[in-house]
Design a protein around this nucleic acid. Structure first.
Lengths: 189, 189
DNA sequence: ACCTGAACACCGTTCAAGT
DNA sequence: ACCTGAACACCGTTCAAGT
């Protein structure tokens, strides 16, 4: 609100637009993001945005890509493959919980799980070192990513809390699920 | 298109509205559904809808509830708990694939997994007969539902096909995931 | 009780015009 | 190259008026 009236002295830039858009989404959800409101927040004419972003869909796509790259420092680390998998799952979770509103939208769109992303590479490395043949590691990695994604979606939209009971710790459901998945993988190595 | 011009001789009804809305969503996706277009399809004034549906959100909610009730005949059936769980997962899948566009929206909303729905009851019964104590069956059921939901979301939006490879059979990823989950549950009984 | 027309406060986006 | 104002074709929803 205070920054809404901020003077337009610094030039408009794609990164600045993305940052402002992310602020709106984090605060009030994807449905609160409109090109006109975003422009108003930036103190600029709505149409100026179109010189830096193709359209609203591209903007949301850029937002998703932006937070997905927050996983850049994801590394495999020490320990057994079970411990590595467990740690990776919790990093995915931290990433999702940091931008709950955006994640809710991103999971529905068709390319949230990037085949070449750092997350994906770490996952495949871990599964390989667990002893899965490469083709199998590929497929197991895909379904693990999908299932953990679903898990986080229910956590982010409140379903998980509703189902496991509000008296439980925040990650009770997630922790249980991760161990269940690890046991499932263990049965296949 | 032919039915768009259909005479408004039969009275407008909530069920008729829901049916027409579901037709739009199934054909062109949730984002193609607007109160105005829906009214046009029904040959009626947009505002007439508001006498039968509170608003657009309530309409989408009604739609979700409508297809979720398509699972009414879900029963546990014979076999080991593994077979029962497997069958239940595939019934959930069939339900989701029958209304892909709607499901994409429903999974994001906060109450797709209904604690008292037939799906949920069947799941808990199966887990109980597998030997899980009641409190544990409750929690395991919740995370299973969430993960299978995530799985179906990636299948419905094309992510799964992209990740496991287009040359595979349609349910390769799903089948793998279900067995992995069953193995995970088996490790806990 | 149900339907409607006009109106309000919004959208995303195109296009021609400005600097 | 970047920004803007006016305009177009839409939205969801309220409200007062009709039957």
């Amino acid at each position: 609100m205070a920054e809404a009236a901020r003077a337009r002295d610094i030039p408009l830039t794609r990164d600045g637009i993305l940052a402002a858009a992310l602020r709106i989404v984090d605060a009030d959800g994807v449905e609160a993001l409109s090109m006109r409101k975003l422009a108003a927040d930036l103190g600029v004419n709505p149409m100026s945005l179109y010189h830096h972003v193709e359209n609203k869909a591209a903007l949301l796509d850029g937002l998703t890509r932006l937070v997905a790259e927050g996983a850049n420092e994801v590394a495999v680390g020490p320990g057994t493959w079970q411990e590595q998998l467990h740690r990776l799952a919790y990093e995915f979770r931290a990433l999702s919980l940091a931008h709950r509103n955006l994640i809710r939208h991103a999971f529905t769109s068709d390319d949230f799980i990037q085949r070449n992303g750092p997350m994906w590479r770490a996952l495949r490395t871990i599964l390989g070192s667990a002893g899965l043949p490469e083709a199998e590691a590929e497929r197991v990695g895909a379904v693990l990513a999908a299932m953990v994604g679903g898990l986080l979606l229910t956590e982010v939209n409140g379903t998980m809390r509703r189902l496991v009971g509000a008296d439980e710790s925040d990650d009770t459901g997630f922790a249980l699920a991760v161990w269940l998945l690890i046991d499932g993988v263990a049965a296949r190595v």
